[in-house]
């Protein structure tokens, strides 16, 4: 009998908290999801923004660019995140989409060769393509040695480690290799996941890093912010103007500025740009937005604007590359087309 009353009271009590919380003003909930690469940065932005605007709650889930685009186009998200601009094929029957760059990214080539200390390996795009399609098999191959005369390479076999999960990193990298070597495009192809001819696959940047660290002679490609934060060695790659450039904050910002100077839209890729300091495997990552009904629309625009201005100063501490100011201005101009 007591149990019955106890349950009854418990049941009633369980409704009590909701009575209190209802009195609070309703939060505006904005949902976003997509690219996993900028997730750490976006989380930081959302946290900091929340301190300023207490009545807006923004969610961002790291589900991958492909998932972000799909869910955004099907209308389940208020905004998406992607490393690769939405293709016109995907966009065709849809609402008008605006891409807003949020940060710069690059693909760094990293390796594990214990005998090389503090020496920077230099490679060309063509040579990278030959390595990644399995034609150049040993580290002391004459083609590699030729560019790096001051380094003595061990006669280790090159072991390829790649991203097994579909990823924007793979997409950027294979795009670059295909551009440099038609044979690579024919043999391997390009896209978020490609059939690599040999080597081992790992899931995510951290999986790739784990394998590279364990396997002597391994070579792999990895997101730049990850490579910087984990202090991995980075290969300098020959750019369009013939200079060997290591990926870094300054070389990426230079690349973006150069593209802007050449009057290219920022949705164009940043791969293989001109300029002596340009790093050839760079790209933006984007928010994808479209017109939203009020009050969500203006709340989201305010957040995006905030992230392009105040938000940018959080980038560097998290090993992300802030956008150069002219790119920010350009993006803010674009935002006005979304105003209701």
């Amino acid at each position: 009998m007591f149990l019955k009353y106890f349950l009854l009271v418990f049941f009633c009590l369980s409704f009590l908290p909701s009575c209190f919380f209802k009195k609070k003003e309703k939060e505006l909930l904005i949902n976003g999801a997509g690219a996993s690469f900028p997730y750490i940065l976006y989380s930081k932005w959302i946290k900091e923004y929340k301190k300023e605007k207490k009545d807006v709650k923004i969610n961002y889930q790291s589900i991958g660019s492909g998932g972000g685009i799909r869910q955004f186009l099907s209308g389940t998200l208020d905004f998406g995140g992607t490393d690769i601009p939405v293709s016109s094929e995907e966009e065709k029957n849809q609402k008008k989409i605006v891409h807003i760059p949020t940060t710069l990214g690059a693909v760094a080539i990293t390796y594990n060769l214990a005998s090389l200390k503090n020496q920077t390996i230099k490679l060309t795009g063509e040579l990278l393509a030959d390595i990644f399609r399995g034609k150049v098999k040993y580290w002391n191959d004459s083609k590699i040695q030729e560019i790096n005369r001051e380094i003595s390479f061990p006669s280790k076999k090159i072991l390829l480690v790649y991203r097994a999960d579909g990823s924007g990193t793979t997409s950027f990298f294979t795009e670059f290799l295909s551009l440099k070597s038609p044979v690579f495009l024919k043999e391997v192809g390009k896209g978020k996941s490609v059939p690599w001819p040999f080597g081992l696959g790992a899931k995510g940047n951290e999986g790739v890093m784990g394998l590279v660290r364990k396997l002597e002679g391994a070579i792999s490609y990895i997101g730049l912010s990850y490579a910087i934060s984990q202090n991995l060695p980075r290969v300098a790659i020959k750019n369009k103007d013939g200079f060997f450039v290591q990926p870094s904050l300054s070389s990426l910002q230079f690349t973006a500025m150069q593209a802007l100077k050449d009057k290219e839209a920022y949705t164009e890729s940043l791969i293989d740009k001109k300029g002596e300091e340009s790093y050839p495997i760079s790209g933006y990552t984007f928010f994808i937005l479209s017109k939203l009904p009020e009050p969500k629309g203006s709340a989201l625009l305010d957040f995006v604007k905030w992230s392009l201005t105040k938000g940018q100063k959080f980038s560097e501490s998290l090993h992300f590359i802030p956008l150069p100011p002219p790119v920010r201005w350009e993006a803010i101009k674009k935002l006005s087309s979304l105003k209701n």
Binding site: G64, S65, D165, G166, G168, G191, G201, K203
Partner: peptide
């Protein structure tokens, strides 16, 4: 040799299908 199973390819590729 490295290999791939049905379950593992779902885990790795589903989120970012081309």
């Amino acid at each position: 040799a490295p290999s791939q199973t049905m379950a593992s390819i779902l885990a790795t590729q589903y989120a970012e299908a081309d």
